[in-house]
């Protein structure tokens, strides 16, 4: 298929960016979106132009690196996929595809489609962990009874890959689905109880400090999340913070 691409080009973080039009031809519908971007970049390199910078790593939907806002949606029009898992069969021959970086004040553009998501790392560092004695006396996790329901919900929350699609798609650039998932995966397990109050307070404080917006419960994040992280995790985040406040 032949496509017209409208891509955000920005030389560096301080430069003023703009949309630039490109044509790509003979794109196979079996290609992933990133492979289509590779074709474009080979074309650009061949003609001596600067290739389009975009984040990618594992290319199998688990690392959370690939981003891109494609035709007005985070990770494109398909559901439950990252950009690397998005196939070109989702588009038609002759389509014009708009490709932009994830937009949020807390995700500044580094170059073209690459954004700085280290604000997520700082939120994790603020409380997204448990303190465990690793001196050889660590209790075997399998020896601690956990209900199947709680274990399943904790696992579901832990599938968040921190890609930032929730922030990109939220009209308020809120990070509450991400923070809700990270708080939930520990809040549901016995190992997470010791630091529960500090964890939620510190992570929410860091989230606010980073300049993310306020959740207004539109539910867009849940729809666009490639891992299907449920909005229930935001409700749990709210409950955990309320619990910590009255403790």
């Amino acid at each position: 298929m032949n496509l017209t691409l409208k891509i955000w080009r920005q030389k560096d973080s301080s430069a003023k960016g703009q949309m630039v039009d490109y044509k790509v031809t003979d794109i196979s519908e079996h290609m992933s979106f990133l492979e289509m971007m590779d074709v474009l970049n080979e074309q650009l390199v061949g003609s001596g132009d600067d290739p389009v910078a975009f984040d990618h790593d594992c290319r199998e939907g688990i690392c959370g690196m690939c981003s891109m806002y494609i035709n007005g949606e985070a990770h494109g029009p398909d559901r439950g996929v990252t950009t690397c898992q998005l196939h070109m069969r989702m588009f038609k021959d002759g389509d014009t595809i708009t490709i932009e970086p994830f937009r949020a004040a807390a995700f500044p553009v580094i170059k073209d489609l690459v954004v700085d998501r280290t604000s997520f790392e700082r939120i994790q560092q603020a409380g997204g962990y448990i303190s465990v004695n690793t001196s050889g006396n660590t209790q075997d996790a399998n020896a601690i009874p956990i209900s199947k329901h709680d274990a399943d919900e904790a696992m579901d929350a832990a599938t968040c890959i921190g890609c930032g699609a929730c922030v990109a798609t939220c009209k308020n650039s809120s990070a509450m689905l991400f923070v809700g998932a990270k708080v939930s995966q520990y809040a549901l397990l016995p190992q997470g109880q010791v630091e529960a109050a500090d964890r939620v307070q510190n992570m929410v404080a860091q989230m606010d400090l980073e300049g993310f917006g306020n959740c207004t419960n539109t539910g867009a994040c849940e729809i666009e999340c490639p891992k299907g992280i449920s909005l229930d995790n935001i409700a749990r985040l709210n409950r955990e913070l309320m619990k910590a406040a009255v403790k």
Binding site: W8, N71, G72, A104
Partner: peptide, 17 residues
């Protein structure tokens, strides 16, 4: 919330989600 997104999208399909 407006400050949290300092640059608007050129194309945003809010109705999709």
């Amino acid at each position: 919330n407006k400050k949290a997104r300092n640059v608007a999208y050129v194309k945003n399909n809010g109705a999709a989600n």
